[in-house]
């Protein structure tokens, strides 16, 4: 295949992706009551953590060297990619049920990559709640904490949000792919792994070493909030450079995921075990 053919194929796929997701989102919006309850539920859930921060900082001034507004930046950096992922790539969470029910067969008799069909299978409007809350916190946090906005910081922010989104999508696939190997797998294992993201809402400095390693290496959520925030807020720590490593971590996660995805597909089709 030539380069230009590849490119047009990619464009076609991107267009299809957008169409699939937008139609789903539009439909959800049409069910008024369900839509608002979804938004309300999601906002309350993430707002609860916020209430906690407000209460906490009503009692103390600093948390492990981080001010309230700086923690808001961490919170925002976590919620924004999480909200985007919910909006545009919530499908992997249906993967296990697709495989279990045999509905995955259907994806294999369509002329589009199964990974894309899985990713677009679900679009959760709840993501709007997370996204808007996250954006608010990020904007308030960066301005109130006296951060210097420069062009390159804006670019850095954009790149790290995108790379965080990539990481979260990869993780979504990764944890749910367990369904290919263990069809009856505990639904709680993927959920638990995904929920470790809550650790990323607060500065890593306050955690024990076990948790630090957990959210840096095992479930690298620190790369979506803490490390990029070190760069954005000009924190002087020896770990600051890791903020630039986020795209690399995403790349590794994506490579690992696509390798495993291919193995999973082969297994499903009964090639090699």
């Amino acid at each position: 295949m030539t380069w230009s053919m590849n490119l047009s194929r990619l464009r076609g796929n991107a267009r299809l992706y957008a169409k699939l997701q937008l139609i789903q989102l539009r439909t959800v919006v049409e069910y008024r009551a369900d839509f608002w309850i979804g938004i309300l539920g999601a906002s309350l859930m993430h707002g609860a953590g916020l209430v906690f921060i407000v209460a906490l900082f009503g009692q103390i001034d600093e948390l492990g060297g981080w001010s309230a507004w700086e923690v808001a930046v961490l919170y925002g950096l976590t919620l924004i990619p999480a909200g985007l992922r919910e909006l545009f790539a919530d499908g992997p969470w249906l993967l296990r049920s697709l495989v279990n029910s045999g509905e995955f067969d259907r994806l294999l008799v369509r002329p589009v990559s199964p990974a894309m069909q899985v990713a677009t299978r679900l679009a959760s409007i709840h993501g709007v709640g997370q996204l808007s809350l996250g954006l608010t916190l990020l904007i308030l946090g960066t301005t109130r904490s006296g951060m210097d906005w420069t062009l390159w910081k804006a670019i850095f922010l954009l790149v790290s949000v995108l790379s965080s989104l990539g990481l979260l999508i990869a993780i979504g696939f990764l944890v749910n792919m367990i369904g290919f190997w263990e069809p009856s797998a505990q639904s709680a294992i993927p959920t638990a792994y995904a929920m470790l993201i809550d650790f990323a809402k607060f500065p890593l400095d306050i955690y024990s070493n076990v948790i630090k390693v957990l959210v840096t290496v095992v479930a690298p959520y620190a790369f979506i909030s803490y490390f990029p925030a070190l760069v954005l807020l000009d924190k002087e720590t020896p770990w600051r450079w890791l903020g630039f490593a986020s795209p690399l971590v995403t790349l590794l996660a994506v490579l690992l995921t696509s390798w495993l995805w291919r193995k999973a597909l082969n297994r499903y089709q009964g090639v090699g075990h």
């Binding site: 699939l20 139609i23 439909t27 369509r110 589009v112």
Partner: peptide
């Protein structure tokens, strides 16, 4: 809408 999506998919 499903039909339209299928038209796009194919």
């Amino acid at each position: 809408e499903s039909f339209r999506l299928l038209g796009d998919i194919y």
